[in-house]
Write a protein that binds this DNA or RNA. Sequence first.
DNA 1: TTAGAGCATACCCTAAGGGGAGAGTCAATA
DNA 2: TATTGACTCTCCCCTTAGGGTATGCTCTAA
Lengths: 263, 263
Amino acid sequence: MLKIGEFSKLSHLTVKALRFYEKKGLLIPETVDEWTGYRFYETRQLEDAAKIKAYRQLDLSIDEIKAIMSGADAKVIFAEKAVALQSQREEIDVRLSIIKSILEDVNMKYQVTVKEIPSAIVYYAETTLEKYSDAMQFIPMCGEECRKLNPDLKCTNPPYEFCEYLDGEYRETNIRIRHSEAVEKTGRESELIKFREIPVTKVLSIFHKGAYEQIGEAYAFIMKYAEDNGYKPAGLARECYIDGIWNKESVDEWLTEIQLPIE
Amino acid sequence: MLKIGEFSKLSHLTVKALRFYEKKGLLIPETVDEWTGYRFYETRQLEDAAKIKAYRQLDLSIDEIKAIMSGADAKVIFAEKAVALQSQREEIDVRLSIIKSILEDVNMKYQVTVKEIPSAIVYYAETTLEKYSDAMQFIPMCGEECRKLNPDLKCTNPPYEFCEYLDGEYRETNIRIRHSEAVEKTGRESELIKFREIPVTKVLSIFHKGAYEQIGEAYAFIMKYAEDNGYKPAGLARECYIDGIWNKESVDEWLTEIQLPIE
DNA sequence: TTAGAGCATACCCTAAGGGGAGAGTCAATA
DNA sequence: TATTGACTCTCCCCTTAGGGTATGCTCTAA
């Protein structure tokens, strides 16, 4: 019969942990003095204690250990744990690779995040622009046309509006673009305006601040980032307009998000 | 001016997280309505939100992010984080290798744990045994001799008593052993009895239940385990007697721990 | 008999939010 | 104008695996 302190020294589990394990029903002292509440353990229980300690060192949770100790199939639990550990390992690898690229890169101008974009209904319109700045006429025009077709149709709040560049390559002229904007439901279509539902999408996202002249850098950055860190592009990048000439006077305050679908 | 829900959708941070970040002083809404308490954010703050989200995805803590955002040297923090992640990775690798060996091994008879043995003062005595069972005379004899030399010297509670086999190899006869037992302080020595302090030691530990005939299996197991999982033995294994003929009648209840110093 | 060590319970703490209750606010509709 | 439903607020409890501390009881040796 060992008092808790003695058992603690033999098992190399702290007294706190032993009391905690009792509370969780994992390792119950052989007897408990009815009057004083003193816990008494048997040397025999050192084996269970060792098991518990070994399993904790493998990072099994108390509940998992309890399951194993009460006869559950240990193989299954270990196999599950191995899978979980493996995916933890992969996550860590991704983080390490990102940190490494941050440390190497002198300019940490862009921060990349992974996001999940919920599904949405959008109206969209495609066209070919002679030059980029023509988008500034085209986009409001789409909005007007859509409102004309569907006077009661409302955009989402907050708005979600983006352009995709349909040419595979960079062009200075004759640029094919598709403009989309999220709305509450589908509506009447026209030659120009169509509706579709975009599915839930995982994206890499960065924000670009300032004028559009340097936005090419942002594209280059996110593409390189995806390649360096093992993300596979799964669609056209979306250029989302958050702040621009329509609400901010100073060009420095313009804000654009670039979302690159992945997986 | 965006309400918290709108900002949440744009930043892909939950409302809960945004309120939490405000509480922690990480991301303060641009204005807070004095009467209603409503938080209002600016689109400009999306950049900070993206940064925070990116850093959280790298598993930086709130405090680390706060340090970076308020101008601390990000390189240092990232470098530290990289080191931490690397060691996490190594831990996971060890666990995976152990789980793999458990899954492969049909007999999960032994559970190995890593322990830290605190330092202790021991008396010790060496001898050559003709056969193993002679230890049953030798060990109590050491105890008596020590008590004769040092009548007031007490053993630790709980006791810590072990044998080391000094021959590098397994022998059936002429076995050189050293027996040690932890005591409270040093004392008078004799030809047979010496004192020394054993330092803090990291060990692999397993428990062997039952008679000593099969204890060889346990040694084989722990040695293979050490090799398989990259632990380097750093000394002689200690055979610690917990339960035996002196306090348990049934052989099945005898309990011995084997501790293999590592690193 | 008394001091000191050991043991008991009980409460609070961790990191990063999640979940929910109860109450106030806002905007659109009847 | 009144109401309804969607948002928002604060406050409190919950998560893991125990650690720290306070207060009081018990045991053991001098």
